[in-house]
Design a protein around this nucleic acid. Sequence first.
DNA 1: ATGAAAGCGCTAACAT
DNA 2: ATGTTAGCGCTTTCAT
Lengths: 343, 343
Amino acid sequence: MKKSITLKDIAQHFKVSVSTVSKALKDSHDISVEMKKKIDDYAKAHNYRPNPYAVNLRKKENKTIGVIIPNILNYFFAQVFSGIEKVANEKGYNLISCISNESLAKERNTIEILEKGLVSGLLISLAEGTEKSNDHEHLISFAENGIPIVMFDRVTDDIECDKVIVDDYLGAYNAVEYLVKSGCKNIAVISPLDNLNIGKQRLKGYTEALKAHNLEVNPNLIVKIFDLELFTAEIRALLTRNKVDAILGLEEFSAINAMNIAVSLGHKIPDDISIIGFTNGQLPKHVSPKVTSISQHGKYIGELATKKLIERIEGKEDDKPEYVTHKLKTSLILRESTRSIPE
Amino acid sequence: MKKSITLKDIAQHFKVSVSTVSKALKDSHDISVEMKKKIDDYAKAHNYRPNPYAVNLRKKENKTIGVIIPNILNYFFAQVFSGIEKVANEKGYNLISCISNESLAKERNTIEILEKGLVSGLLISLAEGTEKSNDHEHLISFAENGIPIVMFDRVTDDIECDKVIVDDYLGAYNAVEYLVKSGCKNIAVISPLDNLNIGKQRLKGYTEALKAHNLEVNPNLIVKIFDLELFTAEIRALLTRNKVDAILGLEEFSAINAMNIAVSLGHKIPDDISIIGFTNGQLPKHVSPKVTSISQHGKYIGELATKKLIERIEGKEDDKPEYVTHKLKTSLILRESTRSIPE
DNA sequence: ATGAAAGCGCTAACAT
DNA sequence: ATGTTAGCGCTTTCAT
């Protein structure tokens, strides 16, 4: 066990006091230039680094950020995470990261651990379980510690903090509008996300866009999926019992799975049915036909949220007391599963 | 700022000493039952938790594990990470996680930070930059601290530690053998991974399997990709200049991209050309035809590596000095891009 | 220009 | 059964 070098070791080596070394390493004006140089060189040569635990114990500040993500296998969150990591790294922060696995209990447990001064700030996107139960006590309690929080994507009004969210409403609205303009009249929507606020927002964007274009909102074309086992059956039913000329998938796999079912039923894409999905991964580019998608810019969300959090951590106490919610626009990426808009 | 409660606060409240409280909370036999009960209840009521920094400063031990992953957008590593997180969480460990982004410099930097006692153990898969440069000084230095390391997937012999790897050789070997048995004779291989040992192992599995079945190893059918920009051009050249009846893709997207190019060239899958890929994500299931793949069980790798690491962390000093390398079998998951083996 | 001392919160050996 | 003390490594105020 290579014991790592401390201030004391350096002090003894030069037969000076610990405080001299401490100040020298901080380039204090108290210390003579020669002394500083000697100490600095020695410290570098021996690869001195302050013990982070001692520093924290003294100063009550640390360079770590807690991250709670619902599910890292979801490409969107992986993108967000890579954005978080990038900015945190640039600013010299470490990440303590946890996956809530969509569970309220795990999210709560993690927060209780982090609460005890382990982190200087928290980045969180709510677990599905949390959104369903609408229980935010653990977050409120965490916030009372005065540790800054930034919520992203899946947020709640119950917590006052900075937020970075996606304009899901507009994303869906624009997608539907595009479908209408390209000639679709019977647009179905598939939502496996009805437990989530973002799911509700997207659905609202869908209905509002239809109304804005004087199209009837047909409840038979709104398929809410609560059990993925039934996905295929429900979509087959949708497509056989109704006239459908477009499908909007609100979640990562909905659009692509629905497209595959439609194809197996003999429909031509996009001639018979257009397809658009909220999807971020590699999938839409690699399937055939390539799927038009609504991209959420996950990496940028992560970057922005982290930047805002670090500003709060490092900012003056009462710098800007008012919290801001950044609502980011999605992009509609046109590919082969939709028709073009006639001139 | 809600100031969190300390032993001292509790001690003052009951007008006893700090050590009494400390012992009481540890259920020491020194302390009377009534006292313990009082203190315990009070601590619970006030949600007391020991300050992790103070504990670490005293005891030189902490419940956190460092994780260094080359790229979280790679589904395989996301799977590994979710396995790591699961086990760590079960055992009460936190994760400090970093993405090396395939860069040696970033990997080195991260390790230097973690080295200073921030973590009790390290899980790492080498960055591509590290494998290419073959520079492992930073790891050797880290290991000298006596902090246990477990390497997974991308490992090196230069470091003596427990390792969890995939039998990439056998994975490729079995895949080629399957192709041969299903009637393929001109099997091409695509490797964008020639900088990585795992890439070399897979390639070796390919050549050895051919030899074992008395098939010539044709260098024209071995395509090493060093610049992804050229992927399409190289594969088109491969398919137009040579007779090819099967393709083995050594990396996540190689097989699927090659398949799409083959289809665009008019080849039928799997009748003209069979396709197999080393790929873990959702892709092979969702494209058409569905792609036969070699699965690496990422989540299990993460779980096993973490389990082994925690055993080292918690084990007696000289418990078992000999390190073990766990080599895990891959699975060949047959889908629609390969033909069946005749009876 | 340098040093002594106190203290962050906790543990553990050693009194009482 | 309870308390005293020293100390982990560092910062910082107040001497000198």
